[in-house]
């Protein structure tokens, strides 16, 4: 898994609530049997019309807004367990997703792929949207070691939470299988003792 430590980037703002995984990657694109290439179809039906032409009013088609951080409304990633959603976000080039609330399964899938989901309070999220729409060059600084997210221009920051184990996985690029396999004897003992 890719390592993550720090990031300083402009952002793509998507102030919509309850963005579900069917929007992030529609089911008809789940027929691939590899993990690659899903970025092309990220937010497919919001990005492109039925003739595959980019929709001008969608933020990802607006060159004003670019960056490695996606900022979205609350309850991001609700719905299906498809990890393809996390793969699409990563493949498109996002390393961080910021929201005031994440759906459980999406959050786990993102962390398992080196994409950092950061939960911030509603008012901090509003501040980011406000600043970015005022000035699209607004940069956000993410520091995983110190668990902080900062609006560079104003210095306003928030100390986010992350499970210490998951944090060390991201920083070191480890995944859960490496960890669980190191405890195989205990799994077998558990099976014996049932």
């Amino acid at each position: 898994m890719k390592k993550f430590e720090k990031l300083n980037s402009t952002v793509v703002p998507l102030p919509i609530e309850n963005i579900d995984t069917d929007q992030i990657i529609p089911a008809r694109f789940l027929k691939a049997t590899t993990r690659e290439g899903f970025g092309n179809n990220l937010f497919r039906d919001w990005r492109f019309d039925s003739n595959d032409q980019p929709k001008a009013d969608f933020v990802m088609n607006d060159p004003t807004y670019q960056g490695k951080i996606l900022v979205a409304g609350k309850n991001f990633g609700c719905g299906s367990s498809r990890e393809h959603a996390a793969w699409a976000i990563q493949d498109y080039g996002f390393d961080v997703v910021v929201s005031s609330f994440f759906a459980d399964i999406f959050k786990g899938n993102a962390l398992n792929n080196g994409v950092l989901p950061i939960t911030v309070p509603e008012d901090f999220l509003e501040k980011i949207f406000e600043k970015v729409f005022e000035n699209p060059e607004t940069a956000i600084e993410v520091d995983l070691e110190n668990q902080t997210i900062k609006i560079a221009e104003t210095g306003e920051s928030y100390a986010f939470e992350i499970n210490p184990y998951k944090k060390s996985c991201l920083i070191n690029g480890y995944d859960d299988i490496d960890f669980i396999l190191s405890h195989k004897a205990e799994i077998e003992a558990f099976e014996q003792n049932r």
Binding site: S80, S81, R82, E83, H84, A86, I105, G108, N109, N112, N113, N163, Y165, D175, D176, I177, F179, I180, L181, K184, I187
Partner: peptide
């Protein structure tokens, strides 16, 4: 409960999951 594909691989490999 539902899981992502990385976790499907974990269960294949270990019959276990890391879960809060």
């Amino acid at each position: 409960f539902g899981i992502g594909t990385s976790q499907v691989e974990q269960v294949f490999a270990t019959q276990c999951l890391l879960q809060q």
